[in-house]
Design a binder for these strands. Structure first.
Length: 724
DNA sequence: GGGCTTTAAGTCG
DNA sequence: TTCCACGACTTAAAGCCC
């Protein structure tokens, strides 16, 4: 593979060509050295180490995996993918070599500034615990069949393993490995088929325990959860270490299963910590900045598997960081901040810097609505069109049934195909109407599939997205649906963070490359490292969990008003906090204000905006306030009298845009005489979608911009809901 | 140039 | 002897049209 030890990037301009050339030489040398052991350069997910695989003969595992894979279509595809990554790395190296000393010095300043700004957001007030059940599926199977105890076993099939117990891991067998390779590694391996009924049952038992420590815990999967144990530590007068021990004991007593725990100031660190003393162990990282920084910087990424532990950094990203930038430790993420800012988009660079600082989420996100629903099936590769269409019909039927169960309808249908050579293709169509019936799905999916024929396929998948926001839309209109979504979902959480900051995009683009200039972008990042980890956010006993849509419909205006008032009060409190924080940490606070936190983003607008926007005072009574032009009135200073849209006073620009919209609408009405005043912007869009032709509906220049900006109420809620 | 859609790709468990 | 999953999420780029 690539030489990993060379420092590619020096601040001297002459070093670029030297490094590049040296790299080539070293690479060739290493490649030549690999000739006898070609398996060394064949990396897959399952050749990496995992908990319980410390003593494994890695060379043997790699050789067997290589020998069993070599020559297969899968192997060829892996080689193609590997070549693409190499190309990306080469591009990045070349761009790196073009950076002058002046460039680098500039970018380093940008990075240093961002590091300071991110540092201000550090929150050490919460204690998070991450629980990870040890080899969960395998442990459950052993519980129900004690004969398996002490023997190497894995859950899954000959084609793929879901997990392996610790006895099997000693042989290099692990999750996501094909069963036939695992058998070769460990001939006595016992294979047990998956039984999700059992795993769900035991998962429920563990969740009952989690619930006692944090009723709002976040279930990341069947066998992982995040708990905010700040309150329970206080209530019981116990340390986090004692709580972790106590929880693990309870889990064991009530399920017979062991688990590992990590405790830290945020979820990202807690997750890293839970892996340190696996299995059946725990690791506590004190809520102390120095301890965190020492912990992060003393961990070599590779050795501690830290990179792969961090959500959002997978095989490709790890490869790029190491081989293109020579970043091997979290500490180096900070040291090479200038390079990161120069070569990655702002959101990606922010993410890497946050990881280097050991920052992560400390708030409890809301429940999220799913964004898509899909199914896919793998089968023996075939070109038989009759068979392929039969598979498609089966999938359409299954998908339709799944959608029916959840009461979903959607208008974007995506067909996924994997060819016999493992090439993955996706083809999508966005429809005018929302569909859920198998006949509708099949009809549109067939059309997409026909365009791909003839083809030899080994997998077909169907996905529906862009869901209808259910019947509540019709009853409440867009603003209320936002409240509904706020209560029942955290969908807006992520969006709001981005949107919040995007409000200040111009002023915040501290010299980062435009995203359009980036040809190698890291996917899945925003400024908050924790959001990269896909938490399913299954909050049990959430404060609002009993408020389904029907409840929301019956919930009265007073109740919502009260919520809003409370939240508005929080804004004022946050403003005060932020003013204090900024005042005490920085002299040039202007640049920092929008970056402090999501809350700060919201609040900073209050600080920067109209000083008369004292939302706390104005939210107490119903006030109809005229805007600058005196034509639009805001009930309680947040609700538009024309369409009912809720735009808090602090959202000055959004309000102005909203007003502009109504003015434009009025003008249009006068001109055309056909405008319906009762429709809100979003309703109007939906209305148009139904009526327009396939092409026309795409181009709704007049409304979308307003529509996008016009969801402030849920953004507002989320912003104010976050802790500073 | 901006908004929307499609497509590709990465990541997680 | 068997021959590398599935279902969710995300960001980004490119193409299209106004």
């Amino acid at each position: 593979m690539f030489c990993k030890s060379i420092r590619l990037f020096s601040h001297s301009s002459s070093s670029g060509s030297f490094s590049f050339e040296t790299f080539r030489k070293m690479e060739n040398k290493e490649t030549a050295g690999d000739a006898d052991r070609p398996w060394q350069s064949y990396h897959t997910v399952y050749t990496n180490a995992k908990a319980g695989m410390e003593g494994v003969d890695k060379e043997r595992v790699q050789r067997i995996v290589y020998e069993m894979s070599k020559g297969s279509k899968y192997f060829e595809n892996e080689e193609r993918k590997e070549a693409t990554i190499r190309e990306k790395i080469e591009n990045m190296r070349a761009r790196c070599a073009q950076l002058t000393a002046t460039d680098l010095s500039q970018y380093q300043k940008v990075a240093d500034k961002r590091i300071l700004e991110l540092e201000i957001t550090r929150d050490l007030s919460r204690i998070w615990l991450h629980v990870d059940m040890d080899a969960f599926y395998a442990a459950v199977e052993t519980l129900s069949n004690p004969l398996l105890k002490g023997k190497p076993m894995a859950v899954g099939s000959m084609s793929m393993l879901s997990t392996a117990n610790y006895e099997a891991r000693k042989y290099g067998v692990r999750a996501a490995m094909p069963g036939f390779i695992a058998r070769r590694l460990c001939p006595e391996l016992i294979l047990v088929p998956t039984n999700f009924e059992k795993y769900n049952y035991y998962s429920d038992l563990t969740r009952k325990v989690f619930h006692r420590y944090d009723p709002n815990f976040l279930a990341a999967s069947l066998d992982e959860a995040y708990l905010d144990i700040t309150e329970v530590c206080k209530e019981r007068g116990l340390t986090s270490e004692e709580i972790a021990k106590d929880l693990r004991t309870s889990i064991y007593e009530e399920t017979g299963l062991t688990c590992s725990a990590g405790v830290a100031a945020n979820r990202l660190l807690a997750k890293v910590c839970s892996d340190i003393n696996k299995p059946n162990g725990q690791f506590i990282l004190p809520n102390d900045r120095r301890a965190i920084v020492t912990f992060i910087s003393s961990l070599p990424i590779r050795k501690a598997k830290l990179l792969s532990q961090i959500g959002g950094i997978g095989k490709v990203t790890e490869h790029i960081l190491k081989d293109a930038l020579g970043i091997n430790t979290c500490e180096e993420m900070l040291q090479k901040g200038g390079h990161l800012c120069a070569l990655f988009s702002q959101s990606s660079a922010d993410f890497f810097l946050s990881v280097g600082l050991g920052l992560g989420s400390t708030d409890t996100p809301q429940v999220r609505f799913r964004k898509s629903i899909s199914n896919e099936r793998t089968f023996a590769a075939t070109t038989d069109e009759r068979l392929i269409f039969q598979k498609l019909a089966d999938l359409a039927e299954m998908l339709s049934m799944d959608m029916e169960k959840e009461g979903l309808t959607g208008r974007t249908l995506t067909l996924k195909l994997k060819t016999a050579s493992f090439e993955v293709r996706t083809r999508a169509v966005t429809l005018q109407k929302y569909i859920c019936s198998s006949s509708d799905i099949l009809q549109h999916a067939s059309r997409l599939l026909k365009a791909e024929l003839p083809v030899s396929l080994r997998l077909i998948g169907l996905r529906i997205s862009q869901f209808n926001e259910d019947g509540a839309t019709a009853v409440f209109g867009p603003t209320q649906i936002s409240i509904t979504r706020f209560i029942t979902s955290g969908d807006a959480t992520r969006k709001s963070t981005g949107d919040c900051c995007s409000l200040n995009t111009d002023s915040n683009n501290h010299g980062f490359m435009d995203d359009t200039e980036i040809d190698t972008c890291i996917n899945g990042y925003d400024t908050d490292p924790e959001t990269h980890h896909q938490v399913s956010n299954q909050r049990l006993d959430n404060n609002f969990s009993n408020m389904d849509d029907s409840n929301c419909m019956s919930s009265n205006v007073a109740e919502k008003s009260e919520k809003l008032e409370n939240l508005l009060r929080n804004v004022s409190a946050d403003q005060a906090n932020i003013s204090t924080a900024i005042g005490s940490t920085s002299d040039s606070s202007d640049a920092l204000i929008p970056r402090v936190s999501s809350t700060a983003c919201a609040s900073s607008r209050n600080l920067e905006g109209n000083p008369n926007n004292n939302v706390d005072d104005e939210s107490q009574v119903e006030v109809r306030s005229p805007d600058n032009n005196g034509q639009i009135w805001w009930i309680d200073n947040y609700k538009c009298t024309i369409c009912g849209a809720e735009v808090p006073a602090s959202f000055v620009d959004e309000r102005q845009e909203h007003i502009d919209f109504h003015i434009a609408e009025k003008l249009q009405e006068e001109e055309s005489g056909i405008r319906s005043r009762t429709l809100t912007p979003r309703q109007r869009t939906a209305d148009k979608n139904l009526l327009s032709s396939p092409r026309k509906h795409k181009r709704q220049k007049s409304t979308p911009k307003k529509e996008v900006k016009h969801i402030p109420i849920d953004l507002f809620f989320v912003k104010t809901n976050q802790k500073f």
